[in-house]
């Protein structure tokens, strides 16, 4: 008898390139993997509002401020959208936030680095969102329907973010010596962490096995990282930025850029909580979440009170 509730049927659907929808059968491991990945993705969008938010009040022109505010609003919207998509898997937003606060759920390591000068806003858009797009374009073909659709929508906005980031960098590189120095400084600090966003090298990547089989992950860490490097080096050179990697070199035979060794000790140190801003980012989220408790309580109390009144009237 044909049984739709078996792992083999599920795998056949995956292999046939079908999307899996929330009410469809899925193995526990698939569900868990997606909850972990999607909640991490949602948390990253939300925590990512902090380093950029650090410059809103100091944005140097009204236009720059408007673009930055709109961009951060987009990120918050992505967070909201991804929380909703993850909720279709049977976990609530409150649970996901609790997991973030207890450290069970993570967010992208990149946001544990500080935004120190205005060019960092450029670098975050260009490099961090640029790296995220490479990953997210690939995730548009991920097997879970709601996640795939979220990625299609998010990618459209992210490419705008990347362009505005590059525009800031380009403008500063055409500017005064001080501005050029800020841009290069930002490049130097964000380049390596941006490369680390793709995760460990393929031979060291612990989650890839099932994720590839289930077509959650469509391309390997190293493949995606290489795509990012290949498109970014030329953009950097075009505006006069020096790559902070003396081993960056075009490799004619491979048709790719070679790059220097990534400092994985730093990667693991930051993931374990010892990055420059880990404590600050999480404290910020927890503190404002706690500070907002009375507002959420009030909204709930008001809703219940008036629901009762409606029932009495009815």
């Amino acid at each position: 008898m044909h049984n739709e509730h078996t792992d083999s049927h599920f795998q056949k659907r995956i292999d046939d390139g079908e999307h899996i929808e929330p009410k469809d059968y899925m193995p526990d491991g698939y569900r868990k993997h997606l909850i972990r990945q999607m909640s991490q993705h949602a948390h990253s969008e939300v925590i990512g509002m902090q380093p950029e938010g650090n410059w809103i009040t100091r944005a140097p022109s009204l236009r720059a401020k408007q673009i930055l505010l709109a961009k951060i609003q987009d990120e918050g919207g992505h967070g909201l959208y991804l929380y909703s998509a993850a909720e279709t898997l049977g976990i609530s937003r409150a649970e996901m936030i609790e997991q973030l606060h207890t450290g069970k759920a993570k967010y992208s390591n990149i946001f544990n680095y500080p935004a120190l000068n205005w060019a960092d806003i450029g670098a975050i858009g260009w490099l961090v969102d640029g790296a995220a797009i490479v990953n997210q374009v690939s995730l548009q073909r991920t097997s879970f329907g709601p996640y795939s659709r979220a990625m299609v929508r998010i990618c459209k906005e992210e490419s705008f973010h990347q362009r505005q980031g590059y525009e800031i960098m380009a403008r500063m590189m055409k500017g005064t010596k001080d501005q050029q120095a800020m841009a290069q400084d930002a490049m130097n600090r964000w380049w390596w962490p941006a490369l680390m966003m793709f995760g460990p090298h393929d031979i060291d990547s612990p989650h890839s096995g099932d994720a590839v089989k289930w077509k959650i992950k469509r391309e390997s860490n190293d493949t995606l990282r290489q795509k990012f490097i290949d498109k970014t080096v030329q953009q950097a050179e075009l505006i006069g930025l020096v790559m902070p990697d003396k081993d960056i070199k075009w490799n004619e035979s491979k048709g790719h850029y070679d790059h220097g060794k990534i400092d994985w000790d730093e990667f693991h140190r930051v993931i374990k909580g010892n990055g420059p801003c880990n404590k600050q980012r999480l404290d910020h989220h927890i503190n404002y979440f706690n500070e907002g408790a009375w507002v959420r309580d009030a909204a709930e109390a008001y809703k219940i009170k008036h629901l009762k009144e409606e029932l009495v009237i009815a």
Binding site: Q73, G76, G79, H284, Y288, E291, A293, V295
Partner: peptide, 14 residues
């Protein structure tokens, strides 16, 4: 704009 990332809920932040 100073309230960005400090709202009581994400919807309110937006």
């Amino acid at each position: 704009s100073q309230l960005c990332s400090k709202g009581p809920i994400l919807e309110e932040d937006l």
